[in-house]
């Protein structure tokens, strides 16, 4: 058990150090911070303008909700670029052979990688959350912190689910570019499943609504802690890890 924990930690540290040493991660961080903070500021300006126009709105709360909903698009475009190289690079450098002949299971490798890339996302989010708090802390009437925490929990869960699926795609692809394109395609399909449901009618509406990433994220971003949404995201995370472990095992049988 200790060995497995140490192994996960070894992979986690290696991946995280790799990100902090690569220029790509810093470029992505810069773009992310710029876009996220601009989005927040523009939401605040939008709602303030409505209030000025005479509407009765709770500007801080509405700004936060709209900002969190908008973060969906940003997260969807940024995260596949972090997950694309997780396995594709291992394959390129022929290091999968090292992992496969070390006393470590495929699960542990996949979990270590997912935790590392998720931690990177967490690090990206911390300054943004600090920026939000800086504004919201002075709100009058004071904001309910529930919305803030549940909304961000939703964002972190959504990120973990996207990264987990991205991890799986990366384990299939030979190149990072192919991995990122396929991840975009998969995430887009999973997000917009509800549209397909609306077109096909019952019983698809119910089924696709439950599977859609967007619908569940929107629920959480409004501050509603719906356990079915949490479970759905958790299922996607486990599914991604499971498929990754399986695909790595299968790909060893390929003749190379």
């Amino acid at each position: 058990m200790i060995l497995i924990f140490n192994n996960i930690l070894a992979i986690f540290r290696k991946e995280l150090q790799g990100y902090f040493k690569s220029s790509l991660a810093y470029i992505i961080a810069g773009v992310f911070w710029l876009l996220a903070c601009s989005l927040f500021v523009s939401e605040v300006q939008l709602w303030t303008a409505q209030k000025v126009a005479g509407q009765v709105v709770d500007v801080p709360q509405e700004s936060l909700k709209s900002f969190l909903s908008g973060m969906w698009w940003l997260v969807m475009f940024i995260l596949p670029s972090l997950s694309m190289g997780l396995y594709a690079e291992e394959r390129r450098h022929r290091t999968l052979e090292l992992l496969a002949t070390s006393p470590i299971t495929n699960w542990a490798v996949a979990l270590g990688k997912l935790m590392a890339v998720w931690t990177l996302f967490l690090t990206l989010m911390l300054p943004v959350a600090g920026f939000e708090l800086l504004y919201l802390i002075h709100a009058n009437p004071p904001i309910t912190l529930g919305i803030f925490f549940v909304g961000h929990l939703g964002l972190l869960l959504l990120a973990a689910a996207i990264l987990s699926l991205g991890l799986f795609i990366s384990s299939l692809a030979d190149s990072s570019i192919l991995a990122i394109i396929l991840t975009y395609a998969l995430i887009l399909v999973l997000s917009l499943l509800f549209l397909l449901g609306e077109r096909w009618g019952e019983p698809w509406v119910g089924i696709f609504d439950q599977l859609s990433l967007v619908k569940h994220y929107v629920t959480l971003s409004q501050g509603v802690l719906d356990m079915s949404s949490v479970i759905l995201f958790a299922s996607y995370i486990v599914l991604g890890l499971f498929l990754t472990a399986q695909s790595i095992d299968l790909f060893r049988f390929q003749r190379r």
Binding site: N7, K14, G18, H93, R94, E97, S102, P103
Partner: peptide
């Protein structure tokens, strides 16, 4: 293996530390 399984962005020392951690 036939092609040494190396991570190009690591130093020799940190790579060997990583492998030794991996090997338990």
């Amino acid at each position: 293996p036939e092609v040494p399984p190396l991570y190009p962005n690591m130093t020799v020392e940190s790579y060997l530390h990583f492998v030794s951690r991996l090997k338990g």
